[in-house]
Simulated assay, not measured.
Amino acid sequence: MKILIVYYSTFGNTYKMAQLIADGVKEAGGEPIIRRCPELIPENIIESRPDMKAGAEMQKDVPLVTLEDFKQADGYAFGTPTRFGNVSAQLKNVIDQLGPLWIQRVFEGKPAGVFVSTGTLHGGQETTILTFMTVLLHLGCIIVGVPYSVSDLYLTKGGGSPYGPGHIAEAENKREIDQNEANICKAFGRRLTEIAKRLKST
């Protein structure tokens, strides 16, 4: 059972979330496929920013996502930092290239969900996930969130909601993922995998 985890991450926070979701996929007996979106920020800007440069270095060995990755997957987790309450341009750029697969109905009947990171508590986590759900509906996916049987939703002082995992990185993007946020990420990975198994067996 292959779960494609496709994400964009400027400073590495969303990438770390992707790794935790992959752990959850493995715990449920699935095979996580982690892929990143192509960068759109000019290289000279990244080189001039030590924090961006460190983020790029952290992810340098993660392959770029391809259309074939989407075709081979049984479920999807899309990750993005928020951009003014919406998806990043890098992930949107990938989405805008999915037309040929949409025509082939590649996504129909497969589970999918969204995970996000923000700099602040009310930085658009829920709006970003909710607006991205329209994309998933157009593709024909079955939307997966995080139910309240995951007790960390009651405890989190950081990110995470029924709509999907979240992380608050704070203003300088240096806050590490806390235990509640990590547990929600893993639970999301397990749930995606378990639902993908059920759907594929019907």
Rank of each mutant, 00 (worst) to 15 (best):
128 T>C: 11
8 Y>W: 15
154 Y>N: 11
153 L>A: 05
157 K>E: 13
52 M>L: 15
173 N>I: 11
173 N>W: 15
86 N>R: 12
154 Y>T: 11
132 F>L: 15
155 L>F: 15
40 L>D: 11
163 Y>T: 00
155 L>G: 07
168 I>R: 05
186 K>N: 06
95 I>D: 05
25 V>N: 01
179 Q>T: 14
144 V>K: 05
12 G>A: 04
4 L>Y: 00
164 G>A: 10
161 S>W: 04
137 L>K: 12
73 A>H: 01
78 F>T: 03
163 Y>W: 14
30 G>E: 06
162 P>L: 04
201 S>I: 12
42 P>F: 11
47 E>Q: 15
120 T>L: 11
63 P>F: 08
56 A>S: 12
170 E>Y: 12
116 V>T: 13
128 T>H: 08
32 P>M: 07
101 L>C: 08
162 P>A: 03
87 V>C: 13
149 S>E: 13
183 N>M: 04
115 F>C: 00
126 E>D: 12
94 V>C: 11
146 V>D: 01
124 G>P: 12
171 A>T: 14
122 H>R: 13
156 T>E: 00
10 T>E: 15
105 R>K: 15
147 P>L: 07
26 K>N: 08
92 K>Y: 06
117 S>V: 05
99 G>A: 15
139 L>C: 05
153 L>I: 04
116 V>K: 08
151 S>T: 14
78 F>E: 07
128 T>Q: 08
138 H>R: 10
142 I>Y: 00
191 R>A: 10
96 D>V: 05
23 D>A: 08
142 I>M: 05
30 G>H: 07
9 S>Q: 07
109 G>D: 09
134 T>C: 13
66 T>S: 13
76 Y>C: 04
129 I>S: 02
44 N>L: 08
85 G>H: 07
52 M>Q: 14
87 V>N: 09
